[in-house]
Design a protein around this nucleic acid. Sequence first.
DNA 1: TCGGGCTATGTTCACGTAAACATCAGTCTG
DNA 2: CAGACTGATGTTTACGTGAACATAGCCCGA
Lengths: 353, 353
Amino acid sequence: MTVADEATDAGQPRRRSPSMADVAREAGVSGQTVSRVSTGRPNVDEDTRNRVLAAMRKLGYRPNSAARALRSGHFRNLGVIMFTLSSFGNMRTLDSIAVAAAAAGYSITLIPVQHPTQGEVTVAFSRLSEQAVDGVMIIIEAHALDEADIELPPGLPVVVVDSSARYQYPVVDTDQAEGARLATEHLLDLGHDTVWHISGPVHSYSAERRRESWAETLTTHGRPVPDVIVGDWSSEAGYRAGLELAARPEVTAIFAANDQMALGVLRALHERGRAVPADVSVVGFDDMDESKSFWPPLTTVHQSFEEVGRHTVSQLIEEIEGAPPSSVSVLVPTELVVRASSGPAPRHPTADA
Amino acid sequence: MTVADEATDAGQPRRRSPSMADVAREAGVSGQTVSRVSTGRPNVDEDTRNRVLAAMRKLGYRPNSAARALRSGHFRNLGVIMFTLSSFGNMRTLDSIAVAAAAAGYSITLIPVQHPTQGEVTVAFSRLSEQAVDGVMIIIEAHALDEADIELPPGLPVVVVDSSARYQYPVVDTDQAEGARLATEHLLDLGHDTVWHISGPVHSYSAERRRESWAETLTTHGRPVPDVIVGDWSSEAGYRAGLELAARPEVTAIFAANDQMALGVLRALHERGRAVPADVSVVGFDDMDESKSFWPPLTTVHQSFEEVGRHTVSQLIEEIEGAPPSSVSVLVPTELVVRASSGPAPRHPTADA
DNA sequence: TCGGGCTATGTTCACGTAAACATCAGTCTG
DNA sequence: CAGACTGATGTTTACGTGAACATAGCCCGA
């Protein structure tokens, strides 16, 4: 009844999927003409093209991508090496990468690395060697890998996302420093004497840059730089840090290096009965969807993962399709989103009245 | 200085990456022997194997996956068609799929579909046709697609995740009904007269099953079934629903269909001054990492995305590697995680004293 | 009217791999 | 000690495609 049935009524059950030759026979043309139609090349008569298309539909022809790749030397496929897919930012970035790649006619192959140890990374890269990719994006935050000899197959275009600029490859990243400065200055503008910081893990380059920029901003404004509390991006770590800070009455402003830790801080402050923002102001970083529904809604630094993904893909494809390997790095701007978790500094701590 | 340099000192700059033939020449064996070493086949002398391996290293040989796929007919690559990558559950599932696939020696190709409209889906599937995949996983929640003629290339193994069982393919899913029952009964056990429900969007099959199971549980226990408030999984929707419910004093127990909506509910209850859990108990679904840091920490239904991903991959690979296409569906159990957002029903609403 | 150039189409071939088959030297068994 | 078997290796070939080249019909201007 279906078209497929008609195709198989020839007798012998055809197991293999139809090839160009089958279509050519069906349409009464040469294989080359089928190829031309299939790849959308010009110089094919309108009639012939239609006849070929009809034959393709009838036989259910679909081009064999392996043969095509073997012949043409490229796969229209991009690899993504990523650590901890389960992080909010990485996922959003991956999403926009996938969409941008699809729009450009490329597909995405995921190469997960569970632990950013040298061994695992090497394995991932060697697996990559057998992968059918035209280029690779590396989403990596551990700068422990800087010193490691990340040895990618020579000639394979690479773009690094959100990481150290110390690589030999082009880098696309959010402007971490700007974001941290915006957050810190926002709190200073509200009259707080200084700002406490809960940072991401030590091995994270993003965390490092947010921390440095926070400290620098305080120094620029002539404020004391409190000791950093080091977290690991998780809300649990934020909670622990929050408990610590809640116990100290001089703390009136906290800048958490991401929203999840900010969430933990909020919980700790609630538990200890310190009002937000009346007693303590909290600012996060990321602007994840949920932040606006935190209690109270979180003031945070919005970063556009979409734009990072878009830039990454376009940069990579540009390089793949012949542009000279530009070492230009893209820095995506951030934006402060003020909500209810930050407010004027309380009167008392100034304590000079 | 490096090995690569030695390989190119022959004179002519070799642009193409080395093939089996190059390795064979270097090692003084036939191409077939190189192939045997490369694919780990037996019947190769230890000496010969080492010689070939050395030649491979020296030349920097890496097998051409396109040629390999063309010859062998399979790609060791699985496609994942997914809608809204940006959803918490989908991402976690994808993560575990990627890890499980990597462990089995398969890679993952992402085929994103931005909007689950028929048109977009058709496009995704036709793009898939040109994709080099041995099988496909579909992570889909819109059962609007049930009626649509999802026409996948015939003979391509498929496993559907987290969706309607009305498909002709094997399905792996969380036991949504059990989870909703656990949540509802937990609240009833705490003495609440009934449980209000904020569901996911109407087109979502998961949402539908949670809603049905919630209603059924209430009925089984002889409780009235309140009107459902329909959300869209977002914390914003939860907030709006929460405002609505906070205004009604008879509401003492709320079961939100996911944690994000539960977060919005908590915010609304805080804003309206209804204490959690003293006045109102809230239970979510998903057990995302942040739930434990909500204020108060959220009682929720834990679902194991990891296990869903693992089962999906193993089921698919089984089918690819020759097992008869089993229509067996896997149902992954859930678990109630009791935290601080649920507690005994307040005295007054019983109002019969 | 003729040839140059253009368009539509066909023919040949190579891409790199692995399956199928062929060969050859040992090794074991009766 | 012959014949059968085993293990190591080589030879041939086809997988499906698209580039390069070849051919043939046609239009146009001199």
